[in-house]
Design a protein around this nucleic acid. Structure first.
Lengths: 130, 130
DNA sequence: GTTCATGCAAATCGTTTGCACAATG
DNA sequence: CATTGTGCAAACGATTTGCATGAAC
């Protein structure tokens, strides 16, 4: 797969680079509609996907397309398998001093934080080996 | 708002409590269809929402309904405003030793991790005060 | 001229909602 | 009986995709 030059893609990347915010596809669409009157959402999504494959852009999402639910209410961190999507609770102690550090750095109020580790679970590692 | 007893809701909570996995709504639906042949997805989602309001269940999602994108490829953590949804990059050093700790604890391979802090940004805090 | 990108519209998919009926208190 | 929960189907909203046309190489 070879990528050809595209004005739309160039501008999407440029916008993402110069914007401090972390835009949604729709935000990009609204911004670029003036420049490309016939622009479509399909073009935005297709180009974002290409830029991601090129390692130029990162998508901030949960990894899963579904919402996931749990009844373990005690604070804890998660391990997410990149192969099968399994989510496992971790015993790692919750580090609340991180929230203090962020409050000192940003002078903003922090209510909670979340840590997710991504990797390959034992089951998938075993399958991979065989 | 007063919550009445519901067999479906009881079973959803029970399933979530006894399952090590972090199910999706669909997984719960498939599991409970045998018990409640006329079960519908609406019931699953409505009850999950009630259980969440009761503080018995937590939803694991990204907070935003949209995917968000960024061109800042260097590893960094995020602060997410719970009011306006703004995402800000943090200067906080990235703590790779956390990944080592998780690998020691779980004997699984960790490729990356992510930390998100949730709170209220300065702009929203100012609005709130006025 | 072959391949990739675009615009457009339709399709997809997880989730939400309106409504008439059933269960709860 | 007043209110909440259910099933069903339709609606919703973000994202994806098929297809004919246009741009890149």
């Amino acid at each position: 797969m070879l990528y050809k030059k595209s004005k739309q893609r160039d501008r999407i990347l440029e916008l993402l680079k110069t914007t401090g915010s972390h835009p949604s596809a729709d935000w990009l669409y609204e911004k670029l509609k003036a420049e490309f009157p016939r622009l479509s959402m399909g073009t935005i999504y297709r180009n974002l996907s290409i830029l991601e494959k090129q390692g130029l852009v990162k998508k901030i999402d949960f990894g899963s397309t579904y919402d996931r639910f749990e009844a373990n209410i005690t604070p804890h961190y998660h391990f997410i398998c990149e192969v099968c999507g399994a989510i496992k609770d971790l015993e790692l102690p919750v580090e609340y001093q991180l929230e203090k550090k962020v409050e000192e750095e940003t002078h903003m109020t922090v209510h909670k934080h979340r840590i997710e580790f991504f990797g390959i679970c034992n089951a998938c590692m075993a399958k991979k080996g065989s």
